[in-house]
Design a protein around this nucleic acid. Structure first.
Length: 234
DNA sequence: TACCAGGTCCTCG
DNA sequence: CGAGGACATGGT
């Protein structure tokens, strides 16, 4: 079931090549195939925090501003006054909260992992997840995004789009944990698959399965309870 | 004009 | 636990 839906989404939307890490003015060169440097991995972590309940468009501007200020750096984030940091990321919304979160994440890295992501990412998957969740400001989705896209390990990311799309299709799972369990039980545990699937879900949720869905052009309408109903009405 | 966006934390019943 | 509020900008 889940693989069938994946194939349809892929055929319909094409390859997604995520996570869309940016630099001033352009996509990160060499990002295809995953983040290579510590700095790229850190940028993914920062993006994961900044995009909480916020459109990626607004996050891109904030990341560009951080790049402009050489602030994709654990040390720089720690040494910058919170108020100044908040202004740099202003466009991403909740900027006071998020400035605090960025500092707490970096502070956690410095104190517990020698100031490096590599130490953190070397942990076993479940330990890594618990460590991330222990940081104030990092919840399940942010933790899994960091694991999947920055550490490049297989954790399926559930987000608001996943809930909306699959609840409309007819899935009964209500919580983050339940939905993630279902995906991870039913799919081969492969990083690339998880990355691409989640990216396709976001694409589909933004473009088709919106709050007011465009069932008429949805590639899943035949397998979707909501879609079938909508098509019958039309 | 309202509503929405790749959540998380805190409080209260 | 589950619901409800706070946190805030920018696009449609």
């Amino acid at each position: 079931m889940l693989l069938r839906i994946y194939e349809r989404l892929k055929k319909n939307h094409g390859p997604q090549r995520w996570w869309p890490v940016t630099r001033p003015g352009r996509i990160h060169p060499g990002y295809d195939g995953g983040p290579k440097t510590g700095k790229q991995r850190l940028e993914v972590c920062i993006g994961a925090i900044l995009t909480q309940n916020t459109s990626w468009r607004n996050v891109e501007k904030a990341i560009a501003e951080l790049n402009r200020n050489r602030a994709i750096s654990i040390k720089k984030i720690l040494s910058t006054p919170q108020q100044k940091l908040a202004q740099w990321i202003r466009s991403s919304g909740y900027y006071n909260e998020k400035a605090k979160k960025l500092k707490q994440f970096c502070s956690f890295l410095r104190k517990k992992h020698n100031g490096r992501l590599s130490g953190l990412f070397a942990l076993d998957d479940d330990v890594l997840r618990r460590e991330l969740l222990s940081v104030n400001g990092i919840g399940p989705e942010t933790a899994d995004s960091i694991i999947l896209y920055a550490a490049e390990k297989p954790a399926f990311v559930i987000d608001a789009y996943t809930m909306r799309i699959f609840n409309r299709i007819g899935f009964k799972e209500k919580t983050y944990h339940e939905m993630q369990e279902r995906f991870m039980r039913s799919l081969p545990k492969r990083t690339k698959l998880f990355q691409e699937y989640h990216a396709l879900i976001v694409q589909h949720g933004k473009g088709i399965c919106r709050p007011k869905p465009l069932c008429g052009e949805c590639c899943l309408r035949n397998v979707c309870r909501y879609g079938k109903r909508a098509m019958r009405r039309a």
